[in-house]
């Protein structure tokens, strides 16, 4: 083992970010980010699933027949998701209710399947583990950013605590309730992509 390959963790954070560059796992990123807390819990669950599924698939990659690899991947991912779902239901029931079907949808989250297909199937377990961590965190960064922006401007709170002082409201400041509606999530992701590509010209499409 020739040391840790830091590129595998660093790249997904910016120039190979799973959401804004690889366009994987958009569905859940938009739906759960109206508040910070569910966004954070969701990000954590996805990190767990992507790391362990990458590790497991990479360990058994040489024994999986290529024709049925999708089914094998789906089975392993769904087992991990069932575990995560049961743990969430047991320890943070309120958040699990808020996330509703989106915990189950981690199974078909393209990040998990995408990384398994693109990386874990042809790389060593330790590298796959790092790749999983990197992509999971890259996903988490976007989710938490969206969660912070939408909760702060949409309901004036963070993690459920009031952040915007009452005097602001007295002066006529109002929460932008469009922020917690679905369309604003799409527009915000569009803006994040815009900012990122404006700063890194290599990513622009022709």
């Amino acid at each position: 083992m020739a040391g840790i390959n830091f590129k595998l963790i660093k790249n997904p954070l910016s120039k190979e970010n799973p959401i804004t560059v690889q366009v994987l796992g958009i569905c859940s990123a938009l739906a759960v980010t109206a508040k910070l807390q569910p966004a954070f819990v969701m990000a954590l669950s996805v990190i767990v699933v992507v790391v362990f599924s990458n590790l497991i698939i990479s360990l058994i990659r040489n024994t999986i027949p290529p024709r049925i690899r999708i089914i094998v991947q789906l089975v392993i991912v769904s087992l991990l998701v069932i575990l995560v779902d049961q743990i969430l239901k047991a320890f943070v029931y309120d958040v699990s209710k808020q996330l509703s079907v989106f915990v189950g949808l981690i199974i078909t989250n393209c990040i998990v399947m995408g990384r398994l297909e693109a990386f874990a199937m042809n790389n060593k377990p330790f590298d796959s583990l790092l790749d999983g961590i990197g992509n999971g965190i890259g996903y988490a960064v976007i989710l938490v950013t969206l969660g912070i922006i939408r909760e702060l401007f949409g309901s004036g709170t963070l993690w459920g605590y009031n952040v915007i002082p009452q005097s602001f409201y007295d002066m006529g400041y109002q929460d932008n309730s469009l922020m917690i509606m679905p369309p604003m999530a799409l527009i915000l992701v569009g803006i994040i992509i815009w900012i990122q590509r404006a700063r890194n010209k290599d990513l622009c499409e022709k």
């Binding site: 799409l186 569009g190 815009w194």
Partner: peptide
Amino acid sequence: PAPLRGLGITFIITGLMA
């Protein structure tokens, strides 16, 4: 604008449709 081309503008238009 070049940075918005492709993915970015698609997101924003989807938002407007929503």
